[in-house]
Design a protein around this nucleic acid. Sequence first.
DNA 1: GTGAAAGCGCTAACAG
DNA 2: CTGTTAGCGCTTTCAC
Lengths: 325, 325
Amino acid sequence: MTINVIAEMARVSKTTVSRFLNGKFDNMSEATKERIAETIAELDYHPSRQAQALKAKNSLLIGISVADISNMYTSRLLKGISDYFQNTIYQVLIMDGDNSIEREYSNLEKMVTERIDGIILQPLVHQPDHYQLLIDENIPVVQVDRYTEPFTWPAVVSDNFQKSLEVADLMKSKNYEEIIVLSNHINGVSSRMNRYNGLKTGIENTNITIKLIEIDDNKDWQNTLQSMLESPTKKALYALNGQVLWEIVRFLKKHHIAIPDDVGVIGYDDDMFADMISPEITSVSQNPQEIGRTAAANLMQIMNDKTTLSKTIRIPSTIQMRESL
Amino acid sequence: MTINVIAEMARVSKTTVSRFLNGKFDNMSEATKERIAETIAELDYHPSRQAQALKAKNSLLIGISVADISNMYTSRLLKGISDYFQNTIYQVLIMDGDNSIEREYSNLEKMVTERIDGIILQPLVHQPDHYQLLIDENIPVVQVDRYTEPFTWPAVVSDNFQKSLEVADLMKSKNYEEIIVLSNHINGVSSRMNRYNGLKTGIENTNITIKLIEIDDNKDWQNTLQSMLESPTKKALYALNGQVLWEIVRFLKKHHIAIPDDVGVIGYDDDMFADMISPEITSVSQNPQEIGRTAAANLMQIMNDKTTLSKTIRIPSTIQMRESL
DNA sequence: GTGAAAGCGCTAACAG
DNA sequence: CTGTTAGCGCTTTCAC
């Protein structure tokens, strides 16, 4: 089912059919127009994107590279992105890095091969030269959730540093003496670094001490945490993402450590469950759908204007005050 | 950066480069091979998928149409699918129907235009003739989670009916007298119908009665539920998916209705939270990742063999016994 | 061991 | 108002 078939059946040249397909009716008789329309409808013809792409040198494909597709944050991010592109001529090619740097790179190579017109990237690596491939190919990129440094591409992220300053204020006002930060590896993940650094900055010139447990470097983190909890100081736990937050809560529950009496808890990502467990968990609620939507809109703008706007956009998050801190 | 450029720089014809790209080294001198390899590496050349597709008449694109992308079940399903295709030459085009029949249809039309080679479909509509487009185009399809009837394409689903029989057994053994099933609209969603019908079949010839509240038909479902709960019979709530389950639990919590003393609760989808709230919620745990993987594998087989295996594959789920029932 | 040429389905410049 | 023609980047047949 090709344009030639349609042309033949409608007794016109394929040029005319092409004009019809592209809405160029300026100089087309009603009769021809109608005949083509009928033929197309009858045969249920859809022009081949591959052929169009080859000609036009754009694939109308947008690549999305996410760190881990099976993850609440990611789902909501994708919702925002999909929503935005739904009403455009672009299609969305989603690839899951599965938290593997090799797999992410292989995905990006595939995207280049697909001649995608733009990329929304949740980078697994902090150094931009790891992504030299994309720079060389001069592909428009917008980063989400995290960013590479020094500056390479615009990014849409949460107000991580700022929000951690507020977390620090909370800790001060509640007279906590020690904060144990729990996270997956922090190095190279800007969002986690900013959350951690915001907290450190926020408690400067106080007596509050901070400890950090990086979970994936430390299979034994549960023992580490347990021994840290033994001292008599007033402590709080700060989990830098949702999955870690729930691991902690599960751990505390299992060991019958009372929240917030024995230890305070606050964490990132306000899943629908934070207010359903007892005690309800105080958490920082991000807006991934809005991050996705914004990133998509910015990518579109960059692709259209060829202007690479050089800034980081911060989408506000909010601290949901509940009972655990 | 095209094959012509490479050919010129390596001082061979593009035929030879093409042979190189496709691993046809049968009659190629080591010298040429090396020269081409070097040139490609130097220029970081990636052949255009569009041009290849145009020639080969396959896009190597797989379309995934999901009902709602921002949903735990879907994320895990996508993980399974992505994982499988990662090591193939196929790319995955994910589209979100956002629970809108129109949007789903528009997505499928886009897939046809992209000349995708196969589709994994979580159908929003029960009648297969709604998908006549795909039938006409003769596109290989595997359904997931739900299926259309009468039989059109193979489907990979959970053992919904079977598992609801077990739920019925549980209800009997715990002497429940009345079961209130809560769900989004059941009609046309085979998984929900099977869950409901399995329960009905399971309690045949008992005195247990069943009531059904379809949440989206009934904005007022909370009042409906509340009045249903007033009678003195021993009752249980059965939620047919995760989102409904958590809405119910939230509702009960808010109204201080005790689980399981005032009312028993069981529901589908064993999110990581079911065992973290008090009381822990008894739930049916599906295996969406395995469903996705299996669907992907079957689609591959159909695409390769051109044999449309005509069966429904059921992936076992398990009832996680906890405290709420 | 390698190349010339045709053609995949489409668009656009030019001609009439 | 419409058609002829060339060409997008690749693969493949046939020829040397």
